[in-house]
Design a binder for these strands. Sequence first.
DNA 1: ACAAAAAAATGATATATGTCAACAATAAAA
DNA 2: TTTTATTGTTGACATATATCATTTTTTTGT
Lengths: 231, 231
Amino acid sequence: MANFTKETHCSCCNLKLNIFRFLTDDEMNEINQGRYEVQFNKGETIFKQGGPFTHVACITKGMAKVYLEGNKGKNVILKILKPTELVGGPGFPVDYRHHFSITAITEARACFIDIHAFEQMVKANQQFAMEFLKHLNKATINIYDKLQNLTQKQMHGRIAETLLYLSKGVYSNMDFETTLTRQDIADLSAMTKESAIRILKEFKDDGIIDYTSNSFHIIKADQLEVISKTG
Amino acid sequence: MANFTKETHCSCCNLKLNIFRFLTDDEMNEINQGRYEVQFNKGETIFKQGGPFTHVACITKGMAKVYLEGNKGKNVILKILKPTELVGGPGFPVDYRHHFSITAITEARACFIDIHAFEQMVKANQQFAMEFLKHLNKATINIYDKLQNLTQKQMHGRIAETLLYLSKGVYSNMDFETTLTRQDIADLSAMTKESAIRILKEFKDDGIIDYTSNSFHIIKADQLEVISKTG
DNA sequence: ACAAAAAAATGATATATGTCAACAATAAAA
DNA sequence: TTTTATTGTTGACATATATCATTTTTTTGT
């Protein structure tokens, strides 16, 4: 972790985005006591799976990938984080360890909030607690979706799903330039990078998408939807 | 749903098992207002994916399977419930719908608690809220584990994992008689029933397990562990 | 600008896994 | 009991997917 600053105007907190909007000014001050903002270079680790879970983080600039580290160096990317998403993990309050890793996929900034201060807020503010619960359960719904995609569809369906996720869920554009590697796209789709590359090329040859290196263009989104559904 | 009774001595609540032990007597009374116990026959649906999420349930007798219903009739079984496990789902408080189905795999009894009463307790009792959070996040950790098993291991590893889960996690015995079908075992392992059957037979031929119809015996648990790890 | 490293692309091949069809065994129903 | 339906089993086969080796392209560092 390169630089860290005790930032007083961090977008996630002072603008009261996310679930922080339910905190009172006093509670926000409490949170602000143990709060840091840290700058990350592309590729640097923000959370490390297995490491101590001492802070929740809020991405304030750039993007990061959240992924499970498997045994043989095989990873599953759960989601791409962008501003101003809050991220903790299921280790709170179970074992206070991280159960996934997060690394920056662009230059990024993250605001770190002490887990104990956070826990106090959950206990003190009912509305905050309920919103946090909602936040967690939305994530669980996404994981269920992911579990089905990855276990019940075959490669074409999974790549279609990943392309739609990137286009709609991450970059909010039919054209996007990504810093994700082909391996990352494979890790989002639970397959080898070779397979991912081949299917991307098939889609390109079929005129469903176009790309050169990291610039993607979704031509026939509706057809991707069909492929994603029929698996 | 066959019979339902307004039970006053339901094991999950009155014995204050699970997270209910953190409730005061008054709070417990509140919960008891809108509480029912229902008897299910094997195969009957307890929660239906997509249906309204009006009550959380606590299995008080028998067992049930929690599963995601896929498109082409392909299901993924997330877990087997036994007494006295509490089960809600990520629809609370997101959209108040069920995101998985639950069906009884034996004769079973479930205690239903009104979701609004439950929500009141979460809001009113901090400790209860934190325990509920812990409960949810433990489930999430299990799902992460499942996601990795099912996407990064091949069939032998997945079946080994399933056998260990049944032996250690469900029946707590090296010998167990299960009401799960081969299709269920396949749905726990993300493969077709034919594949599941073939691998079970291989394990039997290799002297790792033994079985006749639904009576299973784990002979070499350590070897199953190895297979499960090396995928 | 150059060399070195990393990422992307491609083809050949092996293997894992699903599909289909047939049949056996078991459980449920009449 | 006999019949019917469900579940389990097996084999032959098709196909999806990974692996490996090699080459090309892009990025990075000096």
